[in-house]
């Protein structure tokens, strides 16, 4: 296994990018997230692991206020990105989401051409002054999404015609096209085969140079392979948070140990 090699790579950036304190999330009467405190570092891949229904995706969606689109969802506590409370009334969730990009579990390209999929964000936020600017952004994003070589000859073909793995990389390219500071990924590989998964994981590691990446995953091997920090959620609680190597080799909490050794979950 080359897991340890990745984990041992130095994490020398110590700036805190996202700081969550006392976060509580309710879906109607259900208490989905219970008092979560976590600090996520810049230029780092942070993995959220835990059994289904433990609240890791819910917490991820709090970070860019995607839960706002669900009527019955209520968030308490404070989440700060670079010291700014994102649940403050003055914060526009639309601008926040431009800064905190998101990639979803199931690849969801729009029923438009590949080019228009990537150009969607830049167009909305007015990031390109000219057509040439836009072309450049699209190319750069597709290169960052590691899919440029596969699609450069058919930029105007529909995005929905690509394979599952290509669609997911297109969605990643689409998310990085708005130049976000944080990239949230909600089980980005769960709908992909092992080869596509490997490509996406490699991509995530490259994205770390420019973004702070938070990834929710069901696969502990994947968490071990791609992340530097790991948080283990269980029944809405953040049980343990620390260096990935430490979580997988020397967990402090008995629940974490049970989960990673396969006894619960």
């Amino acid at each position: 296994m080359n897991d340890m090699r990745i984990v041992k790579r130095d994490v020398d950036m110590n700036d805190i990018k996202i700081s969550a304190k006392g976060v509580q999330v309710y879906y109607g009467d259900t208490h989905a997230i219970k008092d979560v405190n976590v600090e996520i570092k810049d230029k780092t891949v942070t993995a959220f692991i835990g059994p289904s229904g433990c609240g890791k995706s819910t917490f991820l969606r709090c970070l860019n206020r995607m839960n706002d689109t669900i009527d019955i969802c209520r968030v308490e506590g404070s989440i700060q990105i670079e010291g700014e409370d994102i649940y403050d009334k003055r914060v526009d969730p639309v601008q926040l989401r431009a800064k905190v990009g998101m990639v979803f579990q199931k690849p969801n390209p729009f029923p438009k051409s590949i080019y228009d999929n990537v150009a969607y964000g830049p167009r909305i936020h007015g990031l390109a002054r000219t057509k040439a600017d836009l072309d450049e952004i699209v190319e750069k994003s597709l290169r960052r999404g590691a899919i440029w070589n596969e699609v450069k000859d058919r930029l105007h073909a529909p995005g929905t015609g690509l394979s599952g793995g290509q669609q997911q990389r297109l969605c990643i390219a689409r998310a990085v096209a708005t130049e976000p500071e944080v990239l949230l990924m909600d089980e980005p590989c769960s709908a992909l085969d092992p080869i596509a998964t490997a490509q996406v994981e490699e991509l995530i590691d490259e994205l770390r140079e420019n973004f702070s990446v938070v990834i929710v995953t069901h696969s502990m091997q994947q968490a071990a392979r791609v992340s530097q920090k790991t948080a283990f959620f269980h029944l809405g609680n953040l049980v343990e948070y620390g260096e990935t190597g430490q979580i997988f080799t020397n967990p402090q909490d008995p629940r974490t140990e049970s989960y990673i050794t396969g006894r619960i979950g």
């Binding site: 995607m66 689109t69 601008q95 998101m102 969801n108 729009f110 689409r174 998310a175």
Partner: peptide
Amino acid sequence: AMRDGSYGLGATQSETIRQ
């Protein structure tokens, strides 16, 4: 998923509907 994708990129509601 289409709406999520669009909101996730920072589109407003009417932009999402229109585009």
